[in-house]
Amino acid sequence: VKKMAKAIMADPNKADEVYKKWADKGYTLTQMSNFLKSKTAGKYDRVYNGYVIHLD
């Protein structure tokens, strides 16, 4: 998940494709939050927020 999150950060155009894969795998927002937690607070906030919007 972190590898794909980094791919989104490097190229935001990949976001919809990645979010669809995550949704197809049934990842919940709680799971995504836990996967994307980082020592650098807020590092993956943009990715998480994008997934929230995708699921909505």
Rank of each mutant, 00 (worst) to 15 (best):
T40F: 10
Y44N: 00
A41C: 11
K21W: 11
N49G: 08
A15Y: 03
V1T: 04
K25G: 06
K2I: 13
S38D: 12
D11L: 04
L36V: 01
L36I: 02
D56P: 02
P12C: 08
A10N: 11
I8R: 01
K39T: 13
N34W: 12
K21P: 00
R46T: 14
M9G: 02
K39Q: 11
M4I: 05
K39C: 10
P12K: 07
E17T: 09
G42P: 03
K2N: 03
H54E: 03
L55M: 08
T30E: 15
K25P: 01
N34S: 12
L55C: 07
T40Q: 11
E17W: 12
V47W: 04
K43M: 10
A10R: 15
G26H: 05
Q31R: 05
K43E: 12
K14L: 14
K20D: 04
D45Y: 07
K2D: 02
V18H: 03
K25A: 15
L55F: 04
V47F: 04
S38P: 03
D16F: 14
G26V: 01
M9V: 06
G50A: 05
Y51K: 01
K3E: 13
K43L: 11
K14G: 06
I53E: 14
G42H: 10
A5H: 00
L36T: 00
G26A: 06
G42N: 09
A41V: 12
V47N: 00
L55S: 02
K6M: 13
Y27M: 04
K14P: 02
Y51D: 00
E17Q: 10
T28S: 09
L55N: 04
K25S: 14
I8S: 02
H54D: 01
K37L: 08
K43Q: 09
Y27A: 00
A7C: 11
K21R: 12
D45H: 05
L36M: 01
T40D: 10
N34R: 14
Y44I: 03
S33G: 12
G26R: 05
K20E: 07
Y19G: 00
V1S: 03
L36R: 00
N49M: 15
K20S: 10
A5K: 03
Y27C: 05
A10G: 08
V1Q: 03
P12W: 15
K37I: 09
F35G: 02
L36S: 00
Y48Q: 03
T28E: 02
P12E: 08
T30I: 13
G50V: 07
D45P: 01
H54T: 04
K6N: 12
K37F: 09
T40A: 09
T30Y: 12
G26M: 04
Q31P: 00
K43R: 08
G42F: 06
D16H: 14
R46Y: 13
E17H: 08
A41K: 14
D45S: 08
A41Q: 12
G26F: 05
V18E: 02
Y51I: 03
K6L: 13
V52Q: 12
T40P: 15
K37Q: 12
F35N: 03
G50W: 07
K14S: 08
Y51L: 03
D56R: 15
P12L: 07
I53T: 12
K37P: 01
K2M: 08
Q31D: 13
N34M: 13
A5E: 01
W22N: 00
M32C: 07
R46D: 15
R46P: 10
M9L: 15
Y51A: 01
N49W: 15
G50H: 04
K20A: 10
N13F: 10
D24Q: 13
F35V: 05
L55Y: 04
H54P: 02
I8D: 03
V1L: 08
K2H: 05
N34G: 12
A5G: 03
A10F: 09
K6A: 12
G26Y: 04
A7D: 10
L36E: 01
E17R: 08
N49L: 14
K37H: 11
H54I: 05
K14C: 12
I53Q: 14
H54A: 07
N49E: 15
G42R: 05
D56E: 15
K37A: 11
N49Q: 15
E17L: 09
A15R: 07
R46V: 14
I8F: 03
A23Y: 09
Q31H: 08
V47S: 01
Y19V: 01
K25H: 11
K3V: 10
N13G: 13
M32R: 00
K3W: 11
W22V: 00
V47P: 01
I53F: 10
L36H: 01
M9Q: 06
Y44S: 01
K37W: 10
L55V: 04
A15Q: 07
F35Y: 09
D56Q: 15
K6R: 15
V52R: 15
Q31F: 07
G50Y: 05
H54M: 07
G50D: 05
D24T: 11
G26W: 03
T28C: 05
K25F: 13
N13C: 14
A5D: 03
V1M: 06
Y44W: 08
L36A: 00
N49S: 10
Y27V: 04
K14H: 07
T28W: 04
Y27T: 00
S38A: 06
R46C: 14
N13K: 12
Y19E: 01
W22S: 00
E17K: 08
Y44R: 02
K37Y: 10
Y27W: 08
Y19Q: 00
K2A: 04
D11E: 08
K14W: 06
K6P: 02
K2Q: 07
Y51G: 01
G50P: 00
V52G: 07
Y44A: 01
M32Y: 00
D11Y: 08
K43C: 09
N49Y: 14
N13H: 11
K3A: 13
K14D: 03
T40N: 09
Y48F: 13
A10E: 12
K37E: 10
N34I: 14
M4R: 04
Y19M: 03
K43A: 07
F35D: 03
S38G: 07
A41S: 12
D11G: 02
I8H: 01
L29E: 05
N34A: 13
